[in-house]
Simulated assay, not measured.
Amino acid sequence: MSASSPVIVALDYAQMTPALELAASLDPSACRLKVGKELFTAAGPVLVERLQSMGFEVFLDLKFHDIPNTVAGALRSAAALGVWMVNVHVSGGRRMLEASAEALSGLTAPPLLIGVTVLTSMDAKDFSELACANSLPEQVLRLASLAKDCGLQGVVCSAQEASTLREQLGSPFALVTPGIRPAGATQDDQRRVLTPVEAMDAGSSYLVVGRPITRAEDPAAALHAINESLCVSR
């Protein structure tokens, strides 16, 4: 089942049981699900298979970053699970990115391959400690341009950078934006955040939303409210 919503719910749990319970409360046509490193390490491929059997498309968020051959092999394994989207760190460089795209290119139904630019938990002060010659926005654009040039279908970026990336890189290049917080929600450990409506207006393709849904008293109602706000504004 393909979701009609741009929302990707982040299953940021340490164990399989609460993740499956949360998924059971949601409609696969109303969102996709993201499985990250903590949950995948605890539960493994069986969790992905369970979520897919419930009708959900899965974004496997493992942010591969290693030598080209290792990343290519990991992506082929991820694709064999039937996931909808996978990602790599763009800072792994051109050879790694090209090997990643090549690893999926011959598949009948490959997952979307996107690249992580700069983590949305970082602000300008954090970024300055990395001693990069570019500013944070400049580095995001540089990495996103490299990802597109190497054959990736999109990037993970802050919604605050989405308008610039959309203008510079065009469509249908996918912009996947974490750090999405409905109006009035706390930022938690995210720094570069926007509301769902602001993010879509800025050019985001998909919105990653975690705690505002997963920690809500009624997760399905919280998801519905976000989808309703997007339908009203678009």
Rank of each mutant, 00 (worst) to 15 (best):
A3H: 12
A3W: 05
L11N: 15
L11V: 11
M16Y: 08
A19P: 13
E21G: 14
A24I: 04
A24K: 11
A30E: 15
K34R: 15
F40V: 00
F40P: 00
A42H: 04
G44E: 03
P45H: 09
R50H: 07
M54I: 03
E57W: 10
D61P: 15
F64Q: 02
F64Y: 13
H65R: 07
I67C: 05
A79Q: 08
G82V: 02
V88M: 04
V90T: 01
S91W: 01
G93W: 00
R94I: 03
R94G: 00
E98W: 00
S100L: 01
L107V: 05
A109T: 13
I114C: 04
G115T: 05
V116G: 06
T117D: 07
D123R: 12
A124K: 11
D126Q: 04
F127A: 04
S128E: 14
A131V: 08
C132H: 13
C132D: 13
A133L: 09
L146Q: 15
L146N: 02
L152R: 06
V156C: 07
L169G: 09
V176D: 06
P178S: 12
I180C: 07
V197D: 03
V197I: 13
G203E: 04
P212G: 14
I213K: 10
I213S: 12
H224M: 01
